[in-house]
Computed example of a mutant assay.
Amino acid sequence: MFWLICITAAVLLTPSPSRAQKLVDPDKVAPEYREAAEKRRAEQIEQRQCAMKAEVRNVLPRDRTAFLLECLQGKPETK
């Protein structure tokens, strides 16, 4: 019984794989949508860069959304 509890706790505490969105590849969309795909890819890259800044600065989960919004709006970051 003890082993069952330990195994269950280990499974629940292991981090799940990230469900991050893949980068848009403008070359794989129809020509009429290529410009929009390029813009979306630029947005995704900017979002990833801001997320990396948050990780480097060890931003708390409760403050992460505000940090990301400020970063994406181009405001100077605090901390």
Score class of each variant (00 low, 15 high):
residue 73 Q to G: 12
residue 74 G to M: 10
residue 46 E to P: 00
residue 27 D to W: 06
residue 14 T to V: 00
residue 8 T to G: 03
residue 71 C to D: 08
residue 10 A to F: 08
residue 16 S to I: 07
residue 18 S to G: 10
residue 17 P to R: 01
residue 31 P to D: 01
residue 27 D to R: 15
residue 10 A to Q: 03
residue 50 C to M: 06
residue 63 D to T: 12
residue 77 E to T: 09
residue 68 L to D: 13
residue 74 G to Y: 10
residue 34 R to Q: 15
residue 38 E to G: 09
residue 70 E to K: 13
residue 46 E to K: 15
residue 41 R to N: 11
residue 35 E to G: 10
residue 78 T to C: 13
residue 28 K to N: 10
residue 73 Q to C: 10
residue 26 P to M: 08
residue 40 R to H: 08
residue 10 A to L: 06
residue 58 N to P: 06
residue 60 L to P: 15
residue 7 I to M: 01
residue 65 T to W: 14
residue 17 P to C: 04
residue 44 Q to Y: 06
residue 42 A to W: 04
residue 1 M to K: 06
residue 14 T to I: 00
residue 45 I to P: 03
residue 2 F to H: 01
residue 43 E to G: 01
residue 56 V to G: 07
residue 7 I to D: 02
residue 68 L to W: 10
residue 48 R to F: 12
residue 75 K to A: 09
residue 44 Q to M: 11
residue 47 Q to C: 06
residue 67 F to K: 15
residue 2 F to R: 05
residue 57 R to G: 10
residue 22 K to T: 09
residue 13 L to P: 01
residue 25 D to H: 08
residue 35 E to S: 12
residue 56 V to R: 12
residue 64 R to L: 15
residue 4 L to F: 00
residue 8 T to N: 05
residue 8 T to H: 01
residue 42 A to Y: 00
residue 55 E to T: 10
residue 40 R to A: 14
residue 41 R to F: 04
residue 24 V to T: 14
residue 12 L to Q: 00
residue 20 A to E: 14
residue 14 T to S: 05
residue 15 P to D: 06
residue 79 K to P: 11
residue 36 A to I: 04
residue 62 R to P: 13
residue 73 Q to Y: 09
residue 59 V to C: 09
residue 39 K to V: 05
